[in-house]
Design a protein around this nucleic acid. Structure first.
Lengths: 344, 344
DNA sequence: CATTGAAATGGAAGCGCTTTCATTTTAGAC
DNA sequence: GTCTAAAATGAAAGCGCTTCCATTTCAATG
């Protein structure tokens, strides 16, 4: 239904309406909105008044179409089920918001195909930039982003080939550190509980870090001491039970993700297995429970919030046309607590 | 600064390019995209081929401008720091995504002004619908949404006045239930650890639920037994220590948010206070730790994921122009575990 | 008071798509 | 073959904004 002209306009006021009400040209309103310095004080006041009066809200799609900037930044995370990525995203969103950008977010449940769809949709929506987690995706996605000239950044990973801008840390190195820590304690019989490594470079790198580091000292991870599970506390419990019900038990269990470690500790309590006396447990990420659980968890602290902040800064600088230095890998830190001890 | 030179040459193919390449009119391509049934098989094939060839991605902003539908749904949450709202949002996003909508998300850190800004921006972006948490916001926001004809739904709350569509549960009733449970156990000396109630109707309702229910049996919550703190485990520890260092200790502590309860339990362990023998603790929400912590936590389970799913369904139905029945309050459930016992 | 460069403003042309309405094509019936 | 309704296609007009370029106004100078 098309309303003729005057009164019926139940629709939102446009820039033209504001202009008319303020007695200026639409383009002046546009300037007021985008670069107020170009507008005289008198006009500014009149326009401000008109906007208030009419309850005018600029139409972002129209802006995007005309200016080729959407002021939206997209992000796809594997999951929001734990607070892990949530903390990164929250800081990220807060930063880009301050710079006038909106966040468009999707979770892909660790599914590569879903991620591709989401990225496509976001590109279609004209996101100005993109934040992604990790580096397990098809080359064609990067080609698309490059073709469209959309800045992007990968977090929670580093790209050894330097092909893509990353703001993250070396998962391999982190895993290596914690492995060395355990070996220094005297351990030789290792097990690892890991997330599925297919399509998950973080999990893969952590495994590699463990394997390579063990190998350096002539040790190795027995095939049946490597347990792959979906992420979660319950899965950690299962895996721990499995590992500790076998004749040849490990003396140290490296968990590739913190909830696994919590699960292990809980299950240890239930099974009457003393941690760390009978078996040492390590975590990964240092979430809030790590310091509170009993025994408190020795783990590697990952810079969850720092990544969000730096990624935001990087992308915004990039969008401002600034020359941005290639980010360096962030540091990680072993947090020693109570869950590890020398093997008995 | 970035004039048409630096970024602009995206050179993305437009609908016109596709049309030309396929030998049809642009409008036919549009039909192919929006309502393929209107296009002949022959044209379909040619267009599909052209799209693949050119790597065409429709321009969502242009679509939005022309059609007045953005296919984006906005959501503002108080925080993503715990996984609490994350779980609701994840399910919500997954549902709307299936229906072809994108999620645009912001966290406002429990700040009403921030929320208003975010809502404004989202409206400006032409979100087709909006998901919000709770009901503590200015009337003007609802007026704006109504004026713009944007469907919205409030979660984690119910609106006793029936003014706004809600998909949630009664916080007051939930708090009442758990209070009754404790009174049935024989408790008379209560304390409550709560989030700040200002601008937080959920916290306020929970407090009211506790107070009213105590009053029904002639009891009350002493002023200095009501502790307001920002959400978090550490704050729970502090509050617990404060409460239990005083001469007149409570025998039951109701926590308005689960992390408080975890903090209380951890601090109890540290202080050598036996839970539940010396003091009973209850939580709120039933997050994953509740069943794993020692002692396991008696708490009220809130339908975190159900709310996300139902809210998505409701909004999508609404957007499809369907008549949607006013949603009923969702049920909550007291989960009895180990953290409560009769007072000694 | 002209003069002049800078500041402030306006006009008009699209951005890439959907919508409306008009036209052409097709297929089935006589 | 002709006729007709349905199916398929097209032409053109915007959606609300920014951008480019042209014009007007202003303030300061000689």
């Amino acid at each position: 239904m098309k309303t003729s002209e005057s009164i019926t306009n139940k629709n939102s006021p446009t820039m033209g309406d504001v202009a008319k009400s303020a007695g200026v040209a639409p383009v002046t309103v546009s300037r007021y909105l985008n670069d107020p310095d170009l507008v005289s004080k008198r006009s500014k006041e009149k326009i401000a008044e008109a906007i208030r009066q009419l309850n005018y809200v600029p139409h972002a799609a129209a802006r995007t179409l005309a200016s080729k900037r959407s002021r939206m930044i997209g992000s796809i995370v594997p999951s929001l089920d734990s607070s892990l990525f949530g903390r990164t995203i929250e800081v990220f969103q807060s930063h880009i918001s301050t710079a006038g950008y909106n966040l468009i977010l999707a979770s892909n449940n660790y599914d590569v195909e879903k991620e591709r769809e989401h990225i496509n949709q976001m590109v279609s929506h004209g996101v100005d930039a993109l934040l992604m987690i990790g580096n397990s995706r098809d080359e064609s996605i990067y080609r698309l982003l490059q073709a469209k000239n959309i800045p992007y950044v990968l977090t929670w990973t580093i790209d050894s080939n330097q092909e893509h801008p990353c703001i993250g840390f070396s998962n391999q190195e982190a895993a290596s550190s914690i492995t060395n820590y355990l070996m220094d304690l005297g351990h030789t019989k290792f097990a690892m509980i890991s997330g599925h490594i297919k399509n998950n470079d973080r999990a893969y790198d952590r495994l590699k870090g463990v394997r390579d580091t063990l190998a350096e000292r002539g040790l190795s991870l027995a095939d049946d001491n490597f347990i792959e599970r979906p992420f979660g506390v319950e899965q950690g419990r299962d895996a721990f039970r499995l590992l500790m019900s076998r004749p040849n038990k490990p003396t140290a269990i490296i968990c590739g993700s913190e909830p696994f470690a919590y699960g292990a500790i809980f299950e240890g309590k239930k099974m009457g297995i003393d941690i760390p006396k009978e078996v040492s447990i390590t975590g990964f990420d240092d979430m809030w429970l790590a310091s509170n659980i009993t025994p408190s968890l020795t783990t590697v602290r990952t810079p969850q919030q720092q990544m969000g902040a730096l990624a935001a800064k990087y992308l915004i600088a990039k969008l401002n046309g600034e020359e941005v230095p290639l980010p360096k890998p962030l540091g990680i830190e072993i947090i020693v607590r109570e869950s590890c001890a020398p093997p008995f």
